[in-house]
Structure formats: structure tokens, C-alpha cells
């Protein structure tokens, strides 16, 4: 069998294995579905009334949902790191590495399974969003592109988290560390409030933060940016899809080879 075919078939085996776990561990399903529902509802009704500066002609629900999508899928990607650290701790990586299997299949299978979990999260959030007033005001193709850009960006973050997981080796530490980094990253962005309300330094950070651009990209693709909204004066926000895809490509280009290399050298301690 050639390498591509073996990588694919091994990756399918590993993806299946990871998805079985999702089915058997209710916590994961809860994390992937209930907490986004809670976020949608809390933000929509608790902060919704207080958040000002929205472009005219748009409800907070419509502004909010793409932001929550972005935050949730980025957090969803941290599961990759925690799960790999867990596999490492439990000796499973040693087992896999002693088998004549593809060197990247464990990582591919992991990231693909976590992308699958993100699909579930987004679907649940979208339905909840529709209930609380979110609407897609674009074509089906654009809407699908909106979901795709979120998932693709999150997929790249998964590979970054794979490197973190293989280096940190303790699932709890991976979780805490990524919380400390990702929480501010998803808040210092246009996810929940318009950037116009930010103090200047934070605003510059937020304008170039890829979480902002992935949010804006999906907002535009869902038709959640009303016509007549002033065009931002920074390049990243003028070209959110392109800017997000550049980040995605760079993250993948760096962290896919890095994590495969780390995987090949790592062993349970």
C-alpha cells in the first residue's frame, strides 16, 4: 500500500476510535453542546440589552452568534491537546508508535474527530441561535462557506494544540494553560462587542486577532453585517476571509510537520 492510502486508512481507524469515546463519555457531548447553548442564551439575554454601538439594522442575536461560533470552535480545538496528552499518559501513544502504522494517522485521526465534535457544537448552537433570533440572511452557499471558514480555522488550531499536548503531556495542564491563553484571545476580539468600544491598544490587538477576522468572515457570509455598515480601515478586517485563511495556512504549515516530528520522538514517561 502506498503511504497516502495507509495514512488514510489508519486515520479512519483512529478517527473511529476517538468518536467512540465521544459516544461513551457523556461529559464530552455536554461540553460540546450544552455549554454553547448556555453561552448563546446568557449573552443574548443577559448582555444583549446592555451592549451598545451595534451597527444600525441588526439585532444583538445576529451580531452575537458568529462570535459565539468562533469562540466555541476555538475552545473545541483544545480537546485535541488534552486528548493527546491523555493518550501519552496512558501509554497509548507508545502502543501506536510500536505498530507498523502511518506516522501521522494518530494526529490526523485526532484532529478530524475533534473537527467532527466542532461540527456537532456548531449545529447545536445554530439551532439554538435560530430560536433566540439569529437569522442567516445570505444564500445557502455563502452560509455553508461561513460554517466552513470557522471549521477550517478551528482545525488549524487543533494542530497547534496537538503540539501543546505532546509537549505538556498532562491533560489538566493543557486545559488550564489553553484556557488562560484562549479566553482572552476570544474576548479581545469582535466576538461579543463591537471593536469601536475598545480602548486603543486593545483595539489594535483585536483588529489583527484572527479570532476577530474569523468572526467577521462568518458574519459577512451569514449576512449578519447590515448593508451600509462603515468599512473598517484595517486590511485584516477589510479582507477577513483572506486574512483568516492566511493564518490557517501558516498555522498548518508550521504545526503539522512540527507535531508529526514531536509525535515520532515522544514516549510515555
Amino acid at each position: 500500500m502506498n503511504t497516502l492510502a495507509t495514512t488514510l486508512s489508519d486515520s479512519v481507524v483512529i478517527t473511529k476510535r476517538n468518536l467512540i469515546k465521544v459516544r461513551r463519555v457523556p461529559d464530552l457531548i455536554v461540553f460540546a453542546t450544552l455549554s454553547p447553548i448556555m453561552f448563546v442564551v446568557l449573552f443574548r439575554y443577559v448582555f444583549g440589552g446592555a451592549i451598545g454601538g451595534l451597527p444600525p439594522g441588526i439585532s444583538y442575536a445576529e451580531f452575537l452568534l458568529p462570535g459565539i461560533f468562533a469562540q466555541t470552535v476555538v475552545f473545541g480545538s483544545t480537546i485535541t491537546g488534552a486528548s493527546l496528552a491523555d493518550d501519552l499518559q496512558k501509554g497509548l501513544i507508545d502502543r501506536f508508535r510500536s505498530l507498523p502504522m502511518s506516522r501521522s494517522a494518530v494526529l490526523v485521526g485526532r484532529t478530524v474527530a475533534d473537527a467532527g465534535l466542532n461540527v456537532i457544537s456548531i449545529a447545536v448552537m445554530a439551532l439554538t441561535g435560530l430560536v433566540v433570533g439569529w437569522r442567516i440572511n445570505s444564500s445557502l452557499g455563502e452560509a455553508l462557506a461561513g460554517f466552513l471558514v470557522l471549521l477550517v480555522f478551528a482545525y488549524a488550531i487543533s494542530w497547534l494544540m496537538a503540539v501543546v499536548g505532546l509537549l505538556v503531556r498532562t491533560p489538566e495542564v493543557v486545559n488550564n494553560a489553553s484556557f488562560i491563553v484562549i479566553f482572552p484571545l476570544t474576548f479581545i476580539a469582535n466576538t461579543f462587542v463591537p471593536l469601536e468600544t475598545f480602548p486603543s491598544v486593545l483595539r489594535v490587538f483585536a483588529e489583527w486577532n484572527p479570532v476577530s477576522t474569523v468572526t467577521l468572515a462568518s458574519r459577512e457570509l451569514f449576512g449578519n453585517v447590515p448593508p451600509g455598515t462603515p468599512v473598517p480601515d484595517v486590511w485584516s478586517l477589510q479582507n477577513p476571509v483572506l486574512y483568516t485563511l492566511v493564518w490557517t495556512a501558516v498555522i498548518l504549515a508550521v504545526f503539522v510537520p512540527l507535531s508529526v516530528r514531536l509525535y515520532q520522538r515522544t514516549a510515555t514517561r
Binding site: 469515546k21 461513551r24 496512558k90 497509548l92 505498530l99 502504522m101 494517522a105
Partner: peptide, 22 residues
């Protein structure tokens, strides 16, 4: 240390490893 996947059944564990041995 036993390297078995806790969430898979005994049968699933063995099938998985078997598949990875081609």
C-alpha cells in the same frame, strides 16, 4: 503499563490494533 483504550470495549481495542497491523 497496560496501554489499552479505556473507552473501547475489549473487542474494539483488539480490532483497532489488528487493523493498524494491517
Amino acid at each position: 503499563y497496560a496501554a489499552v483504550d479505556e473507552y473501547l470495549t475489549g473487542l474494539e481495542n483488539l480490532e483497532m490494533v489488528g487493523r493498524l497491523y494491517r
